[in-house]
Design a protein around this nucleic acid. Structure first.
Lengths: 397, 397
DNA sequence: CTAATTTGTCAATCGCCATGACGAAATGGT
DNA sequence: ACCATTTCGTCATGGCGATTGACAAATTAG
């Protein structure tokens, strides 16, 4: 018997009509082909549990919409007539992902197959610029990418933007982005209106990238990504946990030593005071400057003892904060992403030490992200692609 | 554009067939009537967006199955033919909820309308008894309740049991119940096999009770319930967050002062060392004994300064632990239940103080549960009822 | 070359909801 | 008292979507 039913189950949701069923089944077919490579109609049918006849009509509709392509006959594995291989179209809708960093802008185009078909990066110091100015630059990059996508036969289906700050749930408004000094900025005002828009925290998109593209990410993990601040994103049962207002994942302000140094957030002893970039650099005896993570990694690799101690202490603080998170959430894994993956060799031992000592019962794996620093960018672009896969005909309308 | 899509969206789920649509619509009708009181067919139709004709056939089926009842004509509000009032049947399936406490057993029967139709409580010290012995007693109580339910014209649809321990997700196995000294006990072996069974942590069922029955519980909250240990349960978007193994919500072992006293869990400075019953009693200068929470409340109300300080410190420790949880999860509210609700007047000020000082941005309400100590028991019984409402015909099979 | 197997499609059917019309049962105005 | 109006519940009809069962096509095994 199941009993984790939602409050709204049944009542209040959309009525269940036949068109809705059709839409969901179209989505299922498309998802199945996208996930399990080239597949015959019969293969799809057996996987999703519909009949071959039903799948045939669904496939026809998806082909007419330009979302699926027929690749031709496939080599039969055993006996019998070979099926006709179907693949997700490489010339249909595409997702545009964008990233606003403190010192760069990036945009990329990903097709339905998940391939990156175009990309552009610009180094810009966005620290002291208004949203309007930054987004003007970003819009120029996006338009350039739209043109390139068109040349490849792709039709942009939406734009998703990763920003280093808190985004109010269900809006396009950046409530607070400390490192950009943005406050309550509604990005939709300065972006092309012709594309469906999604704006979210870079940690969230990074976690989605880990979920969708990662090597070993289970459907239940905690993704930690430190850049300047320390952000986390929670994936529960394959879904991103955003929190009631969209502000979930603020790992950086979890108290580690309650009477520790004061933090800009108003609290004391927050994790960021021990494992944030500024704190680590100070402990390592290094001045703030450009590309500081690389410097830390280099010094640590070279055997600089002060740097190693700084990283070890940061790892321990992370371990304490994560102990709380793991006790609360019971994730299958903790994934270290962003700058943390480059510093992992010196962080992980003390982190795992604290975690292992404090957590009773079966612990939880600590793994390093297999995705590079482009997680947020790729996650954003893939979010658009997923939206198409989730409701194929909603886009074709 | 939406983008919090699950990894499995589309692929892998059940195929969408017409019977599934029918089942979901039956569930919608039943849920709507259950939630919004007596309602005409037309009223249901307008709420869920189906036509009156469609609702009529759905209602007929539910009446034939004994899940809905026709109450007769209702007084018309305006002009027009009065509708025929429909209500959830008070003589159909019923949920049986049970609670295994350290010093008592309780069972109750709840009908589809949510009314408690029978109950039984037995004071037993279960601390030193085997699961087999305890469940033999519980089974006797359950059988008695089944008989009483039958006399009321109710047909038990399932049994849900709340236990003070960790239950492995998707099983009936209590992995660890420190206060009962149970380990890896599969409860299904000693319980009546004729009833569908669900076993879960008492904190989880308590949170569900808060969600389903509570006055002011939003669909997004953190429910804290201290009895002997400190447990929490997270409700996100109207759904219980169980964690990958079912062990989520272990707030009691979140580190508060990392170098604090050692805890039985292996860690140091866990919340339970500051706000657990044993720790609070020690700080209050009271000996362990029976009904200690009542004693604490009494002394605090009487103005005992040492007790008040003990409770204030416990509240502060709770506040620190909850700061971490709120930063991570961004719930709309923190609900204090169980023993905490009785001690709330002396805990909440210091708790809110810590929380308010440490949390940036819009904080999060701290509210006291409106449900008494019977949350877990009621939550369990209602979980069975919800399972019926969620799939009416799955039960009639 | 034949038997066996698998694929894709077609025609027929079934299930479920929408549509539109109808009688029934109330109110309100004359 | 009577009739227009409004709303409710039901019925017959139709459309949409999946299932069923059969068949031709395309391959392998022997």
């Amino acid at each position: 018997m199941e009993c984790d039913d939602s409050k709204q189950t049944g009542a209040g949701r959309l009525p269940d009509t036949q068109q809705g069923m059709r839409r969901r089944n179209l989505s299922r077919v498309l998802h199945t082909v996208a996930a399990d490579g080239p597949l015959s109609r019969a293969g799809v049918a057996s996987r999703i549990g519909l009949t071959r006849a039903a799948v045939s009509t669904l496939v026809d509709e998806l082909i007419r919409a330009g979302l699926l392509e027929e690749l031709g006959p496939e080599r039969p594995a055993r006996v019998g007539r070979p099926g006709s291989a179907l693949a997700v179209s490489a010339h249909g809708p595409a997702g545009i992902g964008a990233e606003v960093g403190v010192d760069h802008l990036a945009v990329c185009v990903v097709d339905l197959r998940g391939a990156v078909r175009a990309r552009a990066v610009r180094q810009v110091d966005n620290r002291a610029r208004t949203p309007k100015a930054v987004l003007a630059d970003l819009t120029a990059l996006v338009r350039q990418m739209v043109v390139e996508a068109g040349q490849e036969g792709l039709r942009p289906a939406g734009l998703a933007i990763a920003v280093p700050g808190l985004v109010a749930r269900g809006t396009h408004t950046v409530v607070r982005a400390p490192n950009l000094d943005w406050h309550d900025a509604d990005l939709s005002a300065w972006l092309p209106a012709e594309l469906p828009l999604a704006v979210d925290n870079e940690a969230n998109f990074g976690a989605l990238a880990e979920l969708w593209l990662g090597d070993a990410a289970p459907a239940d993990f905690l993704h930690v990504s430190a850049e300047i601040g320390i952000g986390a994103a929670l994936v529960v049962d394959g879904r991103l946990l955003r929190g009631s207002r969209g502000f979930a994942g603020e790992l950086g302000h979890v108290p580690v030593w309650p009477e520790g140094p004061e933090c800009a957030c108003g609290g004391r002893g927050c994790l960021e005071q021990y494992a944030g970039e500024e704190a680590v650099l100070r402990a390592a005896g290094l001045p703030p400057g450009a590309d500081r993570v690389a410097v830390l990694a280099e010094r640590a690799a070279a055997g600089d003892e002060q740097v190693r101690v700084a990283l070890r202490d940061a790892g321990a603080a992370l371990g304490i904060a994560l102990t709380g998170a793991v006790n609360l959430l019971d994730p299958r894994a903790v994934v270290l992403g962003g700058a943390l993956s480059r510093l992992a060799p010196w962080l992980v031992p003390s982190l795992e030490d604290e975690l292992g000592r404090r957590i009773a019962g079966p612990g939880c794996d600590v793994v390093v992200s297999s995705i590079g620093s482009e997680g947020p960018l790729l996650g954003a672009a893939h979010a658009v692609v997923r939206a198409v896969l989730d409701d194929p005909m909603g886009v074709v309308v």
